[in-house]
Amino acid sequence: MDSSSEPVTVSGENEGAVLTSKWVELQSPERADSVLELLRNYGASQTQISKLIRSHPKLLSTDPEKTLLPKLEFFSSLEISKVDLLKTLTFNPKLLAVSLRNRILPTYNFLRSILSEKNVGVIFKHNSWIFLEGHCKHVVPNIGLLRESGMSQPCISFLLTRGTRVLMVNPEKFGQLVSEVKEMGFNLEKSTSVNALCALCGKNKLVLNRSRELLKTWGWSEDDFPSAFRKNPQCMVVSEKKLMQAMDLLVNKMGWSSGMIAKYPVALGLSLERRLIPRCSVVKVLLLKGFINENLNLGSLLKPTEKQFLEIFVNRYLGQVPELLSVYQGKVDIQDV
């Protein structure tokens, strides 16, 4: 049997793991061994190596010194941890196949002309596809359109960092998206316009439409949704489960009107476990004991920092309700106070 068609055994944490010849026709078993050794030296686990080879079999035929090592060294130079580097490469193994000189470096240089090294690292971790597709075809013309439309450079940088995929949309569709955002009354000089672009792009728009229909069942009017969206676009694209849990807590358990929540849509985007439930539990106790007015403004509950909230709603009443801090920390139930 030809040696190139024999199974390749990957030694390491999981002895005997086999990469079969159906994944790759090896020209050089020695080269394959060198590739595997290089990946292990960079801290890749056996599971990660297996995923990389399954997704990109030709990696075993790559020249480890001339092709693979320079890419690994470049990616390692970004401001990201080795753990994040390996997670990204395992998720998007084609990064090890695309040309460093002709695609990766030009895109990196473009990003660095606009962003800090740290934010380029953020893009690599969360939107590494831009290093595969490049920046010339879509990103550059789309940024040009935003500049012509009056978007400030800080907002463009914010969008490029946090919503990279939005800028990778076909320029014609992107132009329609920008027009839609402007028609909805967003000011392109403010960061809310960036959040709106992200919320209206791709799958998020489906989520947005679903949220609109769900909130109608809670009594939101035709005007409530667009008004709430203009105030806080990202809170309108949370999961269905999170949306329903938040509305159930605020409307059914706390007794606030659906219309009030529409005025403070930030409530729908806050963490239930870390923000909404602890604060609502404290306020519920204070309401039941008559220490605060039932017409409490929802914003005064949500806007304060944790330190401010503790001072206003917890520490002030500890003399009358000693268990209040424990309620806030989830150690004591409301009915036990």
Score class of each variant (00 low, 15 high):
41 N>L: 15
300 S>G: 06
132 L>A: 04
152 S>A: 06
157 S>M: 04
74 F>K: 06
159 L>N: 01
60 L>V: 08
133 E>N: 05
47 T>F: 13
261 I>S: 10
222 E>I: 03
14 N>I: 10
102 N>Y: 15
119 N>D: 14
247 M>Y: 04
53 I>L: 14
111 L>H: 02
160 L>W: 05
226 P>K: 01
234 Q>N: 09
127 N>P: 01
108 Y>V: 02
225 F>N: 04
131 F>C: 01
89 L>Q: 02
92 N>H: 14
237 V>L: 05
185 G>P: 00
235 C>H: 01
47 T>N: 13
69 L>Y: 13
101 R>E: 15
190 K>F: 06
205 K>H: 06
128 S>E: 02
90 T>F: 08
269 G>D: 11
290 G>M: 00
278 P>I: 09
146 L>I: 02
48 Q>G: 10
274 R>I: 08
186 F>D: 02
171 P>E: 06
210 R>T: 10
122 V>R: 05
197 L>R: 01
34 S>R: 15
258 S>V: 08
4 S>T: 07
85 L>R: 06
127 N>H: 12
170 N>D: 15
201 C>E: 09
210 R>L: 12
45 S>D: 12
302 L>G: 03
318 L>C: 07
284 K>I: 08
316 R>A: 02
238 V>N: 03
290 G>S: 03
62 T>N: 10
75 F>K: 02
136 C>R: 13
157 S>L: 04
153 Q>E: 13
200 L>D: 01
182 K>M: 09
53 I>F: 13
304 P>R: 04
315 N>C: 13
81 S>L: 12
334 I>N: 09
113 S>A: 04
112 R>G: 09
195 N>A: 11
